[in-house]
Design a protein around this nucleic acid. Structure first.
Length: 238
DNA sequence: TAGGCCATCTGGTCCT
DNA sequence: AGGACCAGATGGCCTA
């Protein structure tokens, strides 16, 4: 259907329209009364199946969203819940927007309005790899000694906290960190791990971290947020 | 055991 | 009319 966004209330929903719909529903009900039990059951199964498919598609889309989120991926890592995924995605978008604005501002400061050079500088400074979150070794032109603000600043976990949502089974009362959170190395107790093994790469090496930047994951945004719950991975694939 | 998350079923509503 | 979307109800699974 061509309505991939929530339908605003009130569209085409005047009293007459509603009455018509109600009448149609009533008629359908009457038809259903005339249907045999078997036919009714067939119809129900068909509708249920459609709904299942719809929800599966929704989950696939949700998985797609998880894949591009700056968050741990991998078999040993528990999946973000749906609500956490959406909230993290929102913050991620806000962060990228802020990042872009900040970048523009810096560039225009540096180049003092020479837009041509400024644009080139932006391209060189902020390669697309940054957006792809593949932060391995520093990229050419991608400063390692980034000021403490890679603007992943709107804290996901903070938002989650303010919305009363626990990101990935957040552990209770996270004392809010006053300032930028120290990033490296990740504590072994980072969470989302099946069995935190000291010495092994945090998060199984699955988590892309910026060198010299705050970690974007909600784990780091709020200490002790999100722990355990790995076994649901298997349950999720039921 | 309580609480969180999820899948599924179901009826209502709206759109094409 | 048929399909999509939505929200409430229900029950299962899992963890603290």
């Amino acid at each position: 259907m061509q309505w991939p966004w929530p339908r605003p209330l009130g569209i085409n929903s005047g009293p007459s329209r509603r009455a018509a719909a109600a009448a149609a529903a009533a008629a359908a009900k009457k038809d259903k009364k005339q249907m045999s039990e078997g036919e009714l059951q067939q119809l129900r199964l068909k509708i249920n199946s459609r709904e299942r498919k719809r929800m599966h598609d929704l989950n696939i889309a949700m998985d797609g969203l998880r894949e591009v989120m700056p968050y741990a991926h991998g078999p040993s890592v528990r999946k973000l819940s749906k609500i956490a995924t959406l909230l993290l995605a929102r913050n991620y978008i806000l962060m990228l927007t802020n990042s872009l604005e900040e970048m523009k501002r810096l560039v225009s400061e540096i180049y003092g309005g020479h837009h041509h050079h400024a644009a080139a500088a932006v391209a060189a400074y902020h390669p697309s790899a940054c957006g792809a979150m593949s932060h391995g070794p520093p990229l050419p032109g991608h400063p390692v000694g980034h000021p403490m603000h890679h603007p992943l600043l709107p804290s996901t976990a903070a938002t989650l906290a303010t919305t009363g949502i626990t990101a990935v089974r957040a552990a209770p009362p996270p004392p809010p960190p006053p300032a930028p959170i120290p990033q490296a190395p990740h504590p072994a107790s980072h969470g989302l791990l099946k069995s935190p093994s000291p010495g092994s790469a945090p998060l199984g090496g699955a988590f892309p971290h910026w060198s010299g930047m705050p970690c974007p994951c909600s784990m780091c945004q709020v200490p002790s947020a999100a722990h355990h719950h790995v076994s649901r991975l298997s349950a999720d694939s039921k």
